[in-house]
Simulated scan of single mutants.
Amino acid sequence: MDKTKPTIMITGAAGALAQQVIQRLRENANIVAVDFREQVYLGDEIPSYCIDFNKRGFEDLFRKYNFTGVIHLGRIMSSQETRMRRYNANVLGAQKLFEFCHKYEVKQVLVLSTYHVYGAMPYNPALIDEQAPLKAAELTMDLIDSVELENLSTIYLWKYPDLNITILRACNIVGPEVRNTISKILGSEYAPTLLGFSPIMQFIHIDDMADAIVLAFQTIKPGIYNVAPDDWVSYQDALLRSGCKRVQIPSIPPVLPKMIIKTFNLKKFPTYLVNYFKYPVVIDGRLFNKTYNFRPQKSLSDIFNYYKERKLMQGKGEY
């Protein structure tokens, strides 16, 4: 490794977003890629590890590489593991990460969070800023670890100011190779909707989100920031513009859509996110945009055209 360059750990290295971030930083920094799901090959010059944050070997990485900074993008989604294993990885694992960062004098930590922590409910304000309470844990057990990770990050933000922790609450991240719920839905030929509901949603392209992460990491301004564009669109309009055929699911009584989802095993429409397809959760990204002079480069048309064109190519057998 080049000792004249900073050394950065990037977690969640198997994910598309982490790999975009790595590509943007690899020329000017020594990158160490870490993931607790699988080991990925990113070139001979980038050490890559598949490791549990709660295992002894994780601390060995801090001893070996003397990290300047950590970009924490690794989080197990609710559909991937049991609730207890998710909690151990997302919360207890993150606590180990913060403690090691403090112990080995890491100078900067960036944590990727999600707008889901605010919770989806009919009385949400039109624009939710960073001071709003995190209500997701009150609505579903499956988002408790997301809220706990946020709370933990905030505690360490104030407990150890020397870590210069930055927390980014992103809106829906979409685009090539993204495997989250909303991207899978937009990429599907048939997409579920709740009868009578079409909440306003925000989308940010993976390229722009990677740019936002790198910008926030390179410009050290600790704090909590929403990351979202200034425009938004209704869910059903997003489906139409992405070339999806809508499948209506009865929305009342409230238990009915969850029963239908479980009965037909609609994995692309998880029950714990049902309320996010009923009620708008529109976050205010002005603080981040002003602080970092950030403007997304990809428009909503760019985003939806990607999914629409992909379906056309698949239909022609070209994909």
Results as ranks from 00 to 15, higher is better:
196 G>V: 10
114 T>H: 06
48 S>G: 06
223 G>E: 07
94 A>Q: 13
34 V>H: 00
125 P>Q: 09
313 M>N: 11
35 D>I: 04
285 G>F: 14
73 L>Q: 10
134 L>Q: 12
6 P>H: 11
313 M>K: 14
300 L>H: 10
285 G>M: 12
204 I>E: 01
86 R>Y: 08
129 D>Y: 04
133 P>W: 13
262 K>Y: 10
239 L>R: 00
278 K>G: 10
95 Q>H: 07
208 D>P: 12
118 Y>G: 13
296 P>Y: 10
253 P>A: 06
189 E>Q: 12
152 L>C: 07
206 I>K: 10
279 Y>A: 07
237 D>L: 11
287 L>C: 06
248 Q>C: 09
131 Q>M: 11
244 C>R: 00
275 N>L: 08
279 Y>P: 04
173 I>E: 11
15 G>H: 00
138 E>L: 15
66 N>I: 01
9 M>N: 00
246 R>K: 13
146 S>G: 06
131 Q>N: 13
122 P>T: 09
196 G>C: 05
1 M>D: 01
175 G>I: 08
217 F>R: 11
26 R>A: 13
82 T>G: 13
67 F>P: 02
4 T>Y: 11
52 D>G: 12
304 F>C: 01
302 D>F: 03
95 Q>L: 08
261 I>T: 15
136 A>G: 03
76 I>F: 06
25 L>Y: 00
308 K>R: 15
299 S>I: 11
104 Y>G: 10
127 L>P: 05
200 I>H: 04
313 M>I: 12
152 L>A: 04
191 A>N: 10
255 V>I: 13
32 V>P: 00
100 F>A: 05
284 D>R: 03
163 L>Q: 09
193 T>I: 15
311 K>W: 08
132 A>N: 12
190 Y>L: 12
175 G>R: 09
316 K>N: 09
6 P>Y: 15
284 D>N: 11
93 G>M: 02
293 N>T: 09
52 D>I: 04
243 G>C: 07
263 T>K: 15
208 D>A: 04
200 I>A: 10
209 M>E: 14
201 M>Q: 14
211 D>Y: 06
211 D>N: 14
165 I>S: 11
153 S>G: 02
186 L>Q: 03
253 P>S: 09
32 V>R: 01
266 L>P: 08
37 R>G: 03
70 V>K: 02
120 A>I: 01
206 I>D: 00
109 V>P: 00
54 N>H: 05
200 I>K: 15
317 G>S: 12
48 S>H: 12
234 S>T: 14
197 F>Q: 05
78 S>L: 11
270 P>I: 08
233 V>T: 15
157 L>H: 07
154 T>V: 15
221 K>P: 00
241 R>Y: 01
118 Y>E: 10
243 G>D: 01
53 F>Y: 15
33 A>R: 04
139 L>T: 05
305 N>V: 10
92 L>S: 10
166 T>S: 12
231 D>A: 06
112 L>F: 02
127 L>F: 14
200 I>V: 09
207 D>I: 03
277 F>Q: 06
56 R>D: 14
101 C>T: 02
275 N>R: 07
67 F>W: 07
285 G>A: 08
254 P>N: 11
88 N>T: 11
47 P>V: 03
251 S>A: 15
